[in-house]
Write a protein that binds this DNA or RNA. Structure first.
Lengths: 126, 126
DNA sequence: CTTTTTTTGATAATAGAATATCATTATCAT
DNA sequence: ATGATAATGATATTCTATTATCAAAAAAAG
């Protein structure tokens, strides 16, 4: 699969790398359109697909929401999500010890996720 | 909203209460059809909706999957999900201490979730 | 600059889950 | 048992996210 260097992909990557939080495809589209107003949503999905394959990005899944994406290679961390506006933020570090009771016999844990839910500052007043 | 006692709702509630793990709407449909073969998916969704409102059930959200449901009132716990077959299992207790670094200023944490991912015994051999 | 081939953007198509519709059936109060 | 009305089941519809299509534009190579 040959990859050409296009303005669109550069803009998309730039937006994701500059973000301090994981972004959804639509958020990426909107922010990248500040750089390239004609950018289309299909291009965003295509770029996300190849960047995932290339290992430049990783998905961040929050239940009930479309997947977010953040740049790969960040130190191990988790996220918190605002129930009001849907924004997702990064946390630092991880409290998970690797031990849990009740794991079914034979189940091999390979990954884990911790998500905090709440309301962000702007959504407090409701 | 008046609630009549129907065979369908009894079967649905019975299936959820008997399950040792959270079930998706389709899983509930399939298992309840062992009791009531003519049961339709619309009835399952309707029953889940009212049972959620009544507080009989609570949703269990796993990223990228349709929501599961389990009976309400269980002690605080979390879940693990098999990446192979998609089954979700209950864990016991909770390791989350309530402290996390990097919470954005003004963000008020109201809930949290911990999910372990891996492969269950039957999905090991692949 | 020209040619070749990939990428783009607009939009149609698809897929999956959840909801709405409505004639029929079942429940409940009398 | 009967009548009023809620619930059901089959299916159509909606909704939303993602993918496919294809002519036009852009990138890379010569």
């Amino acid at each position: 699969m040959i990859q050409r260097k296009t303005k669109q992909r550069q803009a998309i990557l730039q937006v994701v790398e500059a973000a301090r939080r994981p972004l959804s495809p639509v958020e990426i589209l909107q922010q990248a359109q500040h750089l390239l107003p004609a950018l289309g949503i299909a291009t965003v999905y295509r770029a996300l697909g190849t960047m995932l394959q290339e290992g430049l990005l990783v998905p961040v899944d929050i239940p009930g929401q479309s997947p977010r994406y953040e740049r790969a290679g960040l130190t191990h961390h988790h996220h918190c999500a605002c129930t009001g506006c849907g924004q997702v933020f990064e946390l630092e570090g991880c409290c998970y010890t690797g031990e849990s009771a009740g794991i079914p016999a034979g189940f091999k844990v390979e990954a884990h996720d911790v998500i905090l839910y709440g309301h962000c500052r702007s959504c407090q007043r409701r």
